[in-house]
Nucleic acid binder design. Structure first.
Lengths: 225, 225
DNA sequence: CCTACCGATCGGTAGG
DNA sequence: CCTACCGATCGGTAGG
Protein backbone atom coordinates (compact mmCIF):
# COMPACT_ATOMS: atom_id res chain seq x y z
CA UNK A 1 0.00 0.00 0.00
CA UNK A 2 2.18 2.75 -1.21
CA UNK A 3 1.08 4.69 -4.27
CA UNK A 4 -0.67 3.26 -7.37
CA UNK A 5 -4.28 2.64 -6.33
CA UNK A 6 -4.75 -0.90 -7.64
CA UNK A 7 -7.50 -0.52 -10.28
CA UNK A 8 -10.69 -2.33 -9.20
CA UNK A 9 -8.82 -5.66 -9.45
CA UNK A 10 -11.52 -7.49 -11.43
CA UNK A 11 -8.86 -7.74 -14.14
CA UNK A 12 -6.34 -10.56 -14.62
CA UNK A 13 -2.84 -10.28 -13.18
CA UNK A 14 -1.08 -7.39 -14.79
CA UNK A 15 0.60 -8.15 -18.10
CA UNK A 16 -0.63 -11.72 -17.78
CA UNK A 17 2.46 -12.57 -15.76
CA UNK A 18 4.62 -12.22 -18.83
CA UNK A 19 7.42 -10.80 -16.75
CA UNK A 20 8.82 -12.38 -13.60
CA UNK A 21 10.76 -14.97 -15.54
CA UNK A 22 13.27 -13.55 -17.97
CA UNK A 23 15.51 -10.79 -19.33
CA UNK A 24 14.18 -7.52 -20.62
CA UNK A 25 10.83 -6.93 -18.95
CA UNK A 26 9.96 -4.25 -21.44
CA UNK A 27 10.33 -6.72 -24.25
CA UNK A 28 8.28 -9.33 -22.49
CA UNK A 29 5.49 -6.89 -21.87
CA UNK A 30 5.45 -5.88 -25.49
CA UNK A 31 5.23 -9.52 -26.43
CA UNK A 32 2.30 -10.03 -24.08
CA UNK A 33 0.65 -6.98 -25.57
CA UNK A 34 0.97 -8.31 -29.11
CA UNK A 35 -0.31 -11.71 -28.10
CA UNK A 36 -3.35 -10.32 -26.31
CA UNK A 37 -4.12 -7.96 -29.15
CA UNK A 38 -3.66 -10.66 -31.74
CA UNK A 39 -6.11 -12.94 -30.00
CA UNK A 40 -8.66 -10.14 -29.76
CA UNK A 41 -8.15 -9.17 -33.42
CA UNK A 42 -8.72 -12.77 -34.40
CA UNK A 43 -12.01 -12.93 -32.53
CA UNK A 44 -13.46 -9.47 -33.02
CA UNK A 45 -11.45 -8.00 -35.86
CA UNK A 46 -9.07 -5.07 -35.84
CA UNK A 47 -11.60 -2.25 -35.86
CA UNK A 48 -13.95 -3.87 -33.39
CA UNK A 49 -11.13 -4.21 -30.89
CA UNK A 50 -10.41 -0.99 -29.04
CA UNK A 51 -7.20 -0.12 -27.28
CA UNK A 52 -9.24 -0.11 -24.11
CA UNK A 53 -10.14 -3.74 -24.77
CA UNK A 54 -6.52 -4.66 -25.14
CA UNK A 55 -5.48 -2.68 -22.09
CA UNK A 56 -8.21 -4.28 -20.05
CA UNK A 57 -7.14 -7.76 -21.12
CA UNK A 58 -3.72 -6.90 -19.74
CA UNK A 59 -4.98 -5.29 -16.57
CA UNK A 60 -3.77 -1.78 -17.38
CA UNK A 61 -5.17 1.36 -18.93
CA UNK A 62 -4.90 2.52 -22.50
CA UNK A 63 -2.18 5.15 -22.15
CA UNK A 64 0.10 2.53 -20.64
CA UNK A 65 0.17 0.69 -23.95
CA UNK A 66 1.91 3.63 -25.57
CA UNK A 67 5.05 2.88 -23.64
CA UNK A 68 5.46 -0.24 -25.79
CA UNK A 69 3.98 0.64 -29.15
CA UNK A 70 3.45 3.95 -30.80
CA UNK A 71 0.14 3.26 -32.49
CA UNK A 72 -2.60 0.73 -32.90
CA UNK A 73 -1.35 0.09 -36.39
CA UNK A 74 2.00 -0.94 -35.06
CA UNK A 75 0.28 -3.67 -33.08
CA UNK A 76 -1.36 -5.07 -36.16
CA UNK A 77 1.93 -4.88 -37.99
CA UNK A 78 3.68 -6.82 -35.27
CA UNK A 79 1.03 -9.52 -35.45
CA UNK A 80 1.60 -9.91 -39.13
CA UNK A 81 5.36 -9.92 -38.64
CA UNK A 82 4.96 -12.79 -36.23
CA UNK A 83 2.80 -14.67 -38.69
CA UNK A 84 5.08 -14.31 -41.71
CA UNK A 85 8.04 -15.10 -39.53
CA UNK A 86 6.45 -18.41 -38.64
CA UNK A 87 5.84 -19.18 -42.30
CA UNK A 88 9.44 -18.35 -43.16
CA UNK A 89 10.80 -20.51 -40.37
CA UNK A 90 8.53 -23.37 -41.33
CA UNK A 91 9.72 -23.18 -44.93
CA UNK A 92 13.39 -23.04 -44.00
CA UNK A 93 13.06 -25.95 -41.63
CA UNK A 94 11.15 -27.97 -44.18
CA UNK A 95 13.73 -27.34 -46.88
CA UNK A 96 16.53 -28.26 -44.52
CA UNK A 97 15.03 -31.49 -43.28
CA UNK A 98 13.18 -32.94 -46.23
CA UNK A 99 14.61 -35.55 -48.57
CA UNK A 100 12.45 -34.51 -51.51
CA UNK A 101 10.17 -31.61 -52.47
CA UNK A 102 6.93 -33.39 -51.65
CA UNK A 103 8.13 -34.18 -48.17
CA UNK A 104 9.21 -30.54 -47.86
CA UNK A 105 5.69 -29.41 -48.66
CA UNK A 106 4.26 -31.71 -46.06
CA UNK A 107 6.74 -30.59 -43.44
CA UNK A 108 6.03 -26.95 -44.23
CA UNK A 109 2.29 -27.34 -43.74
CA UNK A 110 2.75 -29.26 -40.54
CA UNK A 111 5.36 -26.88 -39.13
CA UNK A 112 3.50 -23.76 -40.03
CA UNK A 113 0.27 -24.89 -38.41
CA UNK A 114 2.15 -26.13 -35.36
CA UNK A 115 3.73 -22.74 -34.86
CA UNK A 116 0.54 -20.83 -35.42
CA UNK A 117 -1.56 -22.87 -33.06
CA UNK A 118 1.27 -23.05 -30.58
CA UNK A 119 2.65 -20.47 -28.23
CA UNK A 120 0.24 -17.71 -29.03
CA UNK A 121 -2.86 -19.77 -29.60
CA UNK A 122 -3.55 -18.71 -33.17
CA UNK A 123 -3.09 -15.21 -32.04
CA UNK A 124 -2.08 -14.27 -35.45
CA UNK A 125 -4.40 -12.25 -37.56
CA UNK A 126 -4.05 -13.88 -40.90
CA UNK A 127 -6.64 -11.46 -42.12
CA UNK A 128 -7.17 -7.72 -42.28
CA UNK A 129 -4.20 -7.04 -44.46
CA UNK A 130 -6.19 -4.07 -45.63
CA UNK A 131 -6.16 -2.50 -42.21
CA UNK A 132 -2.42 -2.06 -42.24
CA UNK A 133 -0.83 1.17 -43.34
CA UNK A 134 0.45 1.03 -46.93
CA UNK A 135 4.06 0.90 -45.72
CA UNK A 136 3.46 -1.96 -43.33
CA UNK A 137 1.39 -3.80 -45.87
CA UNK A 138 4.12 -3.51 -48.49
CA UNK A 139 6.68 -4.91 -46.10
CA UNK A 140 4.55 -7.86 -45.10
CA UNK A 141 3.47 -8.65 -48.61
CA UNK A 142 7.06 -8.69 -49.82
CA UNK A 143 7.91 -11.38 -47.29
CA UNK A 144 4.70 -13.28 -47.99
CA UNK A 145 5.54 -13.36 -51.64
CA UNK A 146 8.94 -14.87 -50.97
CA UNK A 147 7.35 -17.71 -49.03
CA UNK A 148 4.71 -18.19 -51.71
CA UNK A 149 7.27 -18.38 -54.44
CA UNK A 150 9.32 -20.85 -52.43
CA UNK A 151 6.24 -23.02 -52.13
CA UNK A 152 5.50 -22.77 -55.83
CA UNK A 153 9.04 -23.83 -56.57
CA UNK A 154 8.59 -26.89 -54.42
CA UNK A 155 5.42 -27.76 -56.31
CA UNK A 156 7.26 -27.25 -59.60
CA UNK A 157 10.04 -29.55 -58.44
CA UNK A 158 7.48 -32.20 -57.64
CA UNK A 159 6.04 -31.79 -61.12
CA UNK A 160 9.50 -32.09 -62.67
CA UNK A 161 10.19 -35.20 -60.64
CA UNK A 162 6.81 -36.60 -61.63
CA UNK A 163 5.76 -37.22 -58.05
CA UNK A 164 2.49 -35.31 -58.43
CA UNK A 165 -0.12 -35.00 -61.11
CA UNK A 166 0.00 -32.10 -63.56
CA UNK A 167 -1.40 -28.96 -61.98
CA UNK A 168 -1.06 -25.21 -61.84
CA UNK A 169 1.47 -24.54 -59.03
CA UNK A 170 -0.05 -21.18 -58.24
CA UNK A 171 -3.54 -22.59 -57.75
CA UNK A 172 -2.18 -25.55 -55.84
CA UNK A 173 -0.41 -23.29 -53.35
CA UNK A 174 -3.47 -21.06 -53.02
CA UNK A 175 -5.49 -24.16 -52.30
CA UNK A 176 -3.65 -25.47 -49.30
CA UNK A 177 -2.55 -22.07 -48.03
CA UNK A 178 -6.19 -21.03 -48.04
CA UNK A 179 -7.09 -24.02 -45.94
CA UNK A 180 -4.35 -23.12 -43.48
CA UNK A 181 -5.08 -19.43 -43.32
CA UNK A 182 -8.63 -20.12 -42.36
CA UNK A 183 -7.79 -22.22 -39.34
CA UNK A 184 -7.90 -19.28 -36.99
CA UNK A 185 -11.54 -18.76 -37.85
CA UNK A 186 -12.57 -21.92 -36.04
CA UNK A 187 -9.61 -22.99 -33.93
CA UNK A 188 -9.84 -22.53 -30.21
CA UNK A 189 -7.10 -23.47 -27.84
CA UNK A 190 -9.25 -25.62 -25.62
CA UNK A 191 -11.11 -27.24 -28.53
CA UNK A 192 -11.54 -30.90 -29.36
CA UNK A 193 -8.57 -30.98 -31.69
CA UNK A 194 -5.07 -30.02 -30.68
CA UNK A 195 -2.94 -27.87 -32.91
CA UNK A 196 -0.65 -30.82 -33.52
CA UNK A 197 -3.51 -33.03 -34.67
CA UNK A 198 -4.70 -30.39 -37.09
CA UNK A 199 -1.17 -29.83 -38.30
CA UNK A 200 -0.74 -33.49 -39.05
CA UNK A 201 -4.10 -34.13 -40.70
CA UNK A 202 -3.94 -31.00 -42.81
CA UNK A 203 -0.43 -31.77 -43.98
CA UNK A 204 -1.55 -35.21 -45.10
CA UNK A 205 -4.58 -33.86 -46.92
CA UNK A 206 -2.54 -31.12 -48.57
CA UNK A 207 -0.12 -33.67 -49.97
CA UNK A 208 -2.87 -35.98 -51.08
CA UNK A 209 -4.64 -33.14 -52.87
CA UNK A 210 -1.60 -32.88 -55.10
CA UNK A 211 -0.56 -36.48 -55.34
CA UNK A 212 -3.12 -39.19 -56.00
CA UNK A 213 -0.70 -41.89 -57.05
CA UNK A 214 0.22 -44.74 -54.79
CA UNK A 215 2.01 -44.52 -51.48
CA UNK A 216 5.71 -44.78 -52.52
CA UNK A 217 7.33 -42.25 -50.26
CA UNK A 218 9.75 -40.31 -52.36
CA UNK A 219 11.92 -39.48 -55.34
CA UNK A 220 11.26 -39.98 -58.97
CA UNK A 221 9.31 -43.06 -59.68
CA UNK A 222 10.81 -45.05 -62.60
CA UNK A 223 8.50 -42.98 -64.82
CA UNK A 224 5.77 -44.49 -66.95
CA UNK A 225 6.71 -42.48 -70.03
CA UNK B 1 -29.82 21.11 -67.54
CA UNK B 2 -32.78 21.44 -65.26
CA UNK B 3 -32.15 21.08 -61.55
CA UNK B 4 -29.83 18.48 -59.92
CA UNK B 5 -26.33 19.85 -60.52
CA UNK B 6 -24.73 16.67 -61.90
CA UNK B 7 -22.03 15.82 -59.32
CA UNK B 8 -18.64 16.42 -60.95
CA UNK B 9 -19.35 13.49 -63.34
CA UNK B 10 -16.04 11.70 -62.81
CA UNK B 11 -18.23 8.94 -61.34
CA UNK B 12 -19.64 5.93 -63.24
CA UNK B 13 -23.16 5.92 -64.63
CA UNK B 14 -25.63 6.12 -61.82
CA UNK B 15 -26.48 2.80 -60.17
CA UNK B 16 -24.08 1.15 -62.59
CA UNK B 17 -26.89 0.79 -65.09
CA UNK B 18 -28.55 -1.83 -62.94
CA UNK B 19 -31.97 -0.54 -63.93
CA UNK B 20 -33.12 0.03 -67.50
CA UNK B 21 -33.65 -3.63 -68.09
CA UNK B 22 -36.14 -5.27 -65.77
CA UNK B 23 -39.02 -5.17 -63.28
CA UNK B 24 -38.82 -3.42 -59.93
CA UNK B 25 -36.20 -0.70 -60.25
CA UNK B 26 -36.03 -0.29 -56.53
CA UNK B 27 -35.04 -3.91 -56.16
CA UNK B 28 -32.46 -3.68 -58.88
CA UNK B 29 -30.90 -0.67 -57.30
CA UNK B 30 -30.68 -2.41 -53.97
CA UNK B 31 -29.01 -5.33 -55.67
CA UNK B 32 -26.48 -3.01 -57.30
CA UNK B 33 -25.86 -1.42 -53.94
CA UNK B 34 -25.13 -4.75 -52.28
CA UNK B 35 -22.86 -5.82 -55.11
CA UNK B 36 -20.85 -2.60 -55.05
CA UNK B 37 -20.59 -2.68 -51.28
CA UNK B 38 -19.63 -6.34 -51.26
CA UNK B 39 -16.81 -5.75 -53.68
CA UNK B 40 -15.53 -2.84 -51.62
CA UNK B 41 -15.80 -4.83 -48.38
CA UNK B 42 -13.82 -7.62 -49.99
CA UNK B 43 -11.01 -5.26 -50.95
CA UNK B 44 -10.87 -2.81 -48.08
CA UNK B 45 -12.83 -4.49 -45.33
CA UNK B 46 -16.10 -3.45 -43.72
CA UNK B 47 -14.78 -0.71 -41.47
CA UNK B 48 -12.41 0.74 -44.01
CA UNK B 49 -15.25 1.16 -46.47
CA UNK B 50 -17.37 4.24 -45.79
CA UNK B 51 -20.89 4.78 -46.98
CA UNK B 52 -19.50 7.65 -48.99
CA UNK B 53 -17.24 5.18 -50.80
CA UNK B 54 -20.19 3.00 -51.68
CA UNK B 55 -22.31 5.93 -52.74
CA UNK B 56 -19.52 7.25 -54.90
CA UNK B 57 -19.07 3.88 -56.59
CA UNK B 58 -22.75 4.11 -57.53
CA UNK B 59 -22.64 7.74 -58.58
CA UNK B 60 -24.91 9.03 -55.83
CA UNK B 61 -24.55 10.57 -52.39
CA UNK B 62 -24.68 8.84 -49.06
CA UNK B 63 -28.19 9.79 -47.97
CA UNK B 64 -29.56 8.24 -51.15
CA UNK B 65 -28.46 4.82 -49.95
CA UNK B 66 -30.88 5.03 -47.06
CA UNK B 67 -33.79 4.68 -49.43
CA UNK B 68 -32.72 1.07 -49.99
CA UNK B 69 -31.17 -0.05 -46.75
CA UNK B 70 -31.65 1.18 -43.24
CA UNK B 71 -28.10 0.83 -41.98
CA UNK B 72 -24.58 -0.09 -42.98
CA UNK B 73 -24.99 -3.29 -41.02
CA UNK B 74 -27.90 -4.31 -43.18
CA UNK B 75 -25.62 -4.13 -46.21
CA UNK B 76 -23.13 -6.49 -44.63
CA UNK B 77 -25.96 -8.79 -43.65
CA UNK B 78 -27.28 -8.89 -47.20
CA UNK B 79 -23.81 -9.78 -48.46
CA UNK B 80 -23.64 -12.71 -46.12
CA UNK B 81 -27.17 -13.76 -47.06
CA UNK B 82 -26.11 -13.87 -50.67
CA UNK B 83 -23.07 -15.93 -49.81
CA UNK B 84 -24.87 -18.55 -47.70
CA UNK B 85 -27.61 -18.69 -50.28
CA UNK B 86 -25.05 -19.67 -52.88
CA UNK B 87 -23.68 -22.38 -50.63
CA UNK B 88 -27.17 -23.74 -49.98
CA UNK B 89 -28.03 -23.78 -53.66
CA UNK B 90 -24.76 -25.45 -54.55
CA UNK B 91 -25.38 -28.15 -51.96
CA UNK B 92 -28.94 -28.80 -53.09
CA UNK B 93 -27.91 -28.98 -56.71
CA UNK B 94 -25.05 -31.28 -55.93
CA UNK B 95 -27.23 -33.63 -53.91
CA UNK B 96 -29.84 -33.68 -56.66
CA UNK B 97 -27.44 -34.41 -59.50
CA UNK B 98 -24.77 -36.62 -58.02
CA UNK B 99 -24.79 -40.41 -58.28
CA UNK B 100 -22.76 -40.87 -55.12
CA UNK B 101 -21.59 -38.81 -52.14
CA UNK B 102 -18.08 -38.25 -53.45
CA UNK B 103 -19.40 -36.86 -56.70
CA UNK B 104 -21.77 -34.69 -54.67
CA UNK B 105 -18.83 -33.20 -52.80
CA UNK B 106 -17.06 -32.43 -56.01
CA UNK B 107 -20.14 -30.86 -57.55
CA UNK B 108 -20.70 -28.78 -54.45
CA UNK B 109 -17.20 -27.34 -54.49
CA UNK B 110 -17.41 -26.60 -58.19
CA UNK B 111 -20.89 -25.09 -58.04
CA UNK B 112 -20.18 -22.97 -55.00
CA UNK B 113 -17.03 -21.44 -56.46
CA UNK B 114 -18.78 -20.89 -59.79
CA UNK B 115 -21.53 -18.94 -58.13
CA UNK B 116 -19.20 -16.91 -55.96
CA UNK B 117 -16.89 -15.89 -58.73
CA UNK B 118 -19.80 -15.40 -61.10
CA UNK B 119 -22.35 -12.65 -61.31
CA UNK B 120 -21.05 -10.53 -58.51
CA UNK B 121 -17.36 -11.09 -59.00
CA UNK B 122 -16.56 -12.52 -55.60
CA UNK B 123 -18.45 -9.68 -54.14
CA UNK B 124 -19.20 -11.72 -51.18
CA UNK B 125 -17.53 -10.99 -47.94
CA UNK B 126 -16.71 -14.39 -46.63
CA UNK B 127 -15.06 -12.71 -43.74
CA UNK B 128 -15.90 -10.17 -41.07
CA UNK B 129 -18.57 -12.26 -39.45
CA UNK B 130 -17.65 -10.38 -36.33
CA UNK B 131 -18.76 -7.09 -37.79
CA UNK B 132 -22.36 -8.20 -38.02
CA UNK B 133 -24.84 -7.42 -35.29
CA UNK B 134 -25.42 -10.37 -32.96
CA UNK B 135 -28.87 -10.97 -34.47
CA UNK B 136 -27.63 -11.03 -38.04
CA UNK B 137 -24.69 -13.14 -37.10
CA UNK B 138 -26.90 -15.70 -35.40
CA UNK B 139 -29.10 -15.97 -38.46
CA UNK B 140 -26.22 -16.43 -40.85
CA UNK B 141 -24.42 -18.88 -38.62
CA UNK B 142 -27.50 -21.03 -38.32
CA UNK B 143 -27.69 -21.42 -42.08
CA UNK B 144 -23.94 -21.93 -42.36
CA UNK B 145 -24.14 -24.72 -39.87
CA UNK B 146 -26.81 -26.50 -41.89
CA UNK B 147 -24.59 -26.46 -44.95
CA UNK B 148 -21.61 -27.59 -42.92
CA UNK B 149 -23.48 -30.48 -41.44
CA UNK B 150 -24.75 -31.49 -44.87
CA UNK B 151 -21.17 -31.57 -46.07
CA UNK B 152 -20.04 -33.59 -43.10
CA UNK B 153 -22.78 -36.09 -43.80
CA UNK B 154 -21.56 -36.48 -47.33
CA UNK B 155 -18.06 -37.13 -46.07
CA UNK B 156 -19.44 -39.66 -43.61
CA UNK B 157 -21.33 -41.41 -46.39
CA UNK B 158 -18.12 -41.66 -48.37
CA UNK B 159 -16.45 -43.17 -45.34
CA UNK B 160 -19.27 -45.69 -44.92
CA UNK B 161 -19.07 -46.59 -48.60
CA UNK B 162 -15.32 -46.93 -48.31
CA UNK B 163 -14.64 -44.54 -51.16
CA UNK B 164 -12.30 -42.36 -49.13
CA UNK B 165 -9.62 -43.00 -46.60
CA UNK B 166 -10.42 -42.80 -42.89
CA UNK B 167 -10.51 -39.20 -41.73
CA UNK B 168 -12.22 -36.79 -39.38
CA UNK B 169 -15.22 -35.42 -41.34
CA UNK B 170 -15.17 -32.15 -39.46
CA UNK B 171 -11.52 -31.46 -40.23
CA UNK B 172 -11.96 -32.60 -43.81
CA UNK B 173 -14.78 -30.12 -44.37
CA UNK B 174 -12.84 -27.34 -42.68
CA UNK B 175 -9.95 -28.12 -44.96
CA UNK B 176 -11.60 -27.65 -48.32
CA UNK B 177 -14.05 -24.99 -47.14
CA UNK B 178 -11.09 -23.00 -45.89
CA UNK B 179 -9.47 -23.20 -49.27
CA UNK B 180 -12.70 -21.97 -50.87
CA UNK B 181 -13.40 -19.21 -48.41
CA UNK B 182 -10.02 -17.72 -49.06
CA UNK B 183 -10.48 -17.38 -52.78
CA UNK B 184 -11.79 -13.86 -52.50
CA UNK B 185 -8.51 -12.77 -51.00
CA UNK B 186 -6.68 -13.23 -54.28
CA UNK B 187 -9.31 -13.60 -56.98
CA UNK B 188 -9.82 -10.73 -59.36
CA UNK B 189 -12.35 -10.78 -62.12
CA UNK B 190 -9.92 -9.92 -64.86
CA UNK B 191 -7.18 -12.20 -63.52
CA UNK B 192 -5.32 -14.98 -65.30
CA UNK B 193 -7.68 -17.66 -64.11
CA UNK B 194 -11.40 -17.64 -64.71
CA UNK B 195 -13.82 -18.53 -61.98
CA UNK B 196 -14.74 -21.68 -63.83
CA UNK B 197 -11.14 -22.84 -64.04
CA UNK B 198 -10.65 -22.30 -60.35
CA UNK B 199 -13.92 -24.03 -59.62
CA UNK B 200 -12.86 -27.08 -61.57
CA UNK B 201 -9.30 -27.35 -60.31
CA UNK B 202 -10.27 -26.80 -56.70
CA UNK B 203 -13.05 -29.36 -56.87
CA UNK B 204 -10.59 -31.92 -58.18
CA UNK B 205 -8.03 -31.14 -55.50
CA UNK B 206 -10.67 -31.23 -52.77
CA UNK B 207 -11.75 -34.70 -53.80
CA UNK B 208 -8.20 -35.93 -54.12
CA UNK B 209 -7.36 -34.61 -50.67
CA UNK B 210 -9.93 -37.06 -49.31
CA UNK B 211 -9.49 -39.93 -51.69
CA UNK B 212 -6.05 -41.12 -52.62
CA UNK B 213 -7.07 -44.46 -54.08
CA UNK B 214 -7.06 -45.13 -57.80
CA UNK B 215 -9.12 -43.40 -60.44
CA UNK B 216 -12.32 -45.55 -60.57
CA UNK B 217 -14.99 -42.90 -60.88
CA UNK B 218 -17.67 -43.91 -58.44
CA UNK B 219 -19.57 -46.26 -56.15
CA UNK B 220 -18.12 -48.79 -53.79
CA UNK B 221 -15.07 -50.43 -55.14
CA UNK B 222 -15.19 -54.25 -54.80
CA UNK B 223 -13.39 -53.72 -51.48
CA UNK B 224 -10.04 -55.15 -50.62
CA UNK B 225 -11.13 -56.39 -47.22
C1' DC C 1 1.22 3.97 -15.33
C1' DC C 2 -3.12 6.87 -14.30
C1' DT C 3 -6.88 10.71 -14.92
C1' DA C 4 -8.67 13.54 -17.76
C1' DC C 5 -9.40 15.39 -22.34
C1' DC C 6 -8.91 16.67 -27.33
C1' DG C 7 -9.91 15.90 -32.47
C1' DA C 8 -11.08 13.41 -36.43
C1' DT C 9 -13.87 10.26 -38.68
C1' DC C 10 -18.07 8.58 -40.07
C1' DG C 11 -22.78 6.55 -39.56
C1' DG C 12 -27.05 8.47 -39.64
C1' DT C 13 -30.74 12.31 -40.02
C1' DA C 14 -33.26 16.89 -40.90
C1' DG C 15 -35.32 19.27 -44.18
C1' DG C 16 -36.25 20.31 -48.49
C1' DC D 1 -31.94 12.32 -54.24
C1' DC D 2 -29.13 16.48 -52.40
C1' DT D 3 -26.99 19.92 -48.88
C1' DA D 4 -25.92 20.53 -44.60
C1' DC D 5 -25.26 18.95 -39.96
C1' DC D 6 -25.47 16.29 -35.52
C1' DG D 7 -23.48 12.74 -32.14
C1' DA D 8 -20.89 8.92 -30.73
C1' DT D 9 -16.87 6.39 -30.78
C1' DC D 10 -12.20 5.92 -30.20
C1' DG D 11 -7.20 6.66 -31.25
C1' DG D 12 -3.97 9.43 -29.29
C1' DT D 13 -1.93 13.03 -25.91
C1' DA D 14 -1.16 16.33 -21.84
C1' DG D 15 0.33 16.45 -17.53
C1' DG D 16 1.41 14.58 -13.54
Amino acid sequence: MTRSPSPSSRAPARWNNALAQAPDPRDLRKRALIAAAGRAFGVKGFHNTTLDDIAQALGVTKPALYRYVKSKHEILFECHRLAVGMAEQALDDANAQAQDPLEALRLFVEGYIRRMTGELGTCVVLTEYYSMTPEHSALIQRRRRVVDSGLRQLVQQCLDAGTIEPCDPKLAVFFFMGAINNINRWFSEGGERSGDQIAHEFSVMAVKALRPREHGTRQDIPAAV
